[in-house]
Design a protein around this nucleic acid. Structure first.
Lengths: 198, 198
DNA sequence: GGGTTTATCGGTCACCTGTATTATGTCAAC
DNA sequence: GTTGACATAATACAGGTGACCGATAAACCC
């Protein structure tokens, strides 16, 4: 064989190319040939690393989620120890919104994947599980904040979690430039202000 | 000529077929042939009524918006006169969420159109304008509610409008069955309860 | 060094896409 | 009864799609 190649690294590079295509050209133009062109490799080579289109999509999605988690984790380390739950929630929420290039690409990937999930049972199960897990974590965080007296004990943890997750609806509004980023942050902060006893 | 045909009616029937395809089979399978099959007409006949794919998409989208508006208007009439602003907001919000068949179809149409808008300047402008107009209406409603003493006067109308619109983020969570409809309604009511002086 | 494995490339396959063209009805008006 | 606008259908076209295959070369193993 030619010089051994780091498979994982190569697959990640291809996934990044996929993100760029989604980001720059749109999901509707997401084809293997277009991705290969963007990655600077041949169509055949791409197929060597991914057996099927679906395999590539799944990998790119998992990789995106992984990267987002890492981004959040890194930012969390810069917070106090232990970090204030309000800051954790704010960070998590803002990292899920398309407020900077990386987040925008993964946000768009996500939207595309959700549309795919609506008519593919397997993709649906995967996405659903991932989201449910994220939701459970957030609810746990809120329950702890209540126990620690950061949040009024009359609040219902489940409902508060749902309301926070619903704020990801800002993504569409930002993308369409209906609301600009600073107003979004203002609204998010407002919501968090009311959640935590000021 | 052959029996004169109601062009508008025919176009609406085709648009409805398009919704069904989006709803049942997914945006990725949205082709002229598939729509024609769903509408029970020939491919050629479809082309007789819509000069291009883009023309059909735009019409279907406008028609969907129109139908949603009508649905909201009809429900509004069943409210008191004048209706309480809280009820108006609740109705508007819940009609935008995929909580019943009609709303689900238009919601999915919308998601697809937004993805299209991200890389098509003209579609972006259309969508943006429509959303901005809707947002302005909602903000006007909130300002009036403040003036009428229904909402605390210390609230910022713009921020409150943004927070309400963000709740459309529930759409994705409902579709992926991460949160079930009754919990969504609970959360929406909770949010409205806090907006209006209890 | 021969056999095996890996990497890369290019081409082919069958299929689907939106658009364009043409043919054939259908029916009202002149 | 001929004309002409409209309705419907069938087909062709040029391009793009993902899956698949074979060739070639390079590096590893025994």
């Amino acid at each position: 064989m030619p010089k051994q190649v780091d498979h994982r690294e190569r697959r990640e590079a291809i996934a990044r190319a996929l993100w760029r295509v989604v980001d720059l050209r749109g999901v509707q133009h997401l084809s293997l040939r277009e991705i290969a062109r963007e990655a600077g490799i041949s169509h055949g080579q791409l197929q060597h690393y991914f057996a099927s289109r679906q395999a590539l999509l799944t990998f790119a999605m998992d990789f995106a989620a992984e990267q987002t988690t890492q981004r959040i984790s890194r930012s969390l380390e810069q917070l106090g120890d232990p970090p204030h739950p309000r800051d954790v929630l704010r960070l998590t929420l803002t990292e899920m919104l398309p407020l900077h290039a990386d987040a925008r690409a993964t946000s768009r990937m996500n939207a595309a994947y959700v549309l795919e999930a609506l008519h593919d049972e397997e993709v649906l199960a995967r996405t659903r599980d991932a989201m449910a897990k994220g939701r459970a974590q957030m609810e746990g965080l809120i329950r702890r904040a209540i126990a620690d007296g950061h949040i009024d004990s009359t609040r219902d943890p489940a409902t508060e979690t749902d309301l926070l997750l619903a704020l990801t609806g800002f993504a569409t509004l930002i993308e369409l430039r209906v609301i600009d980023p600073q107003d979004v942050l203002k609204a998010v902060d407002q919501h968090l202000d009311r959640l935590f006893d000021q």
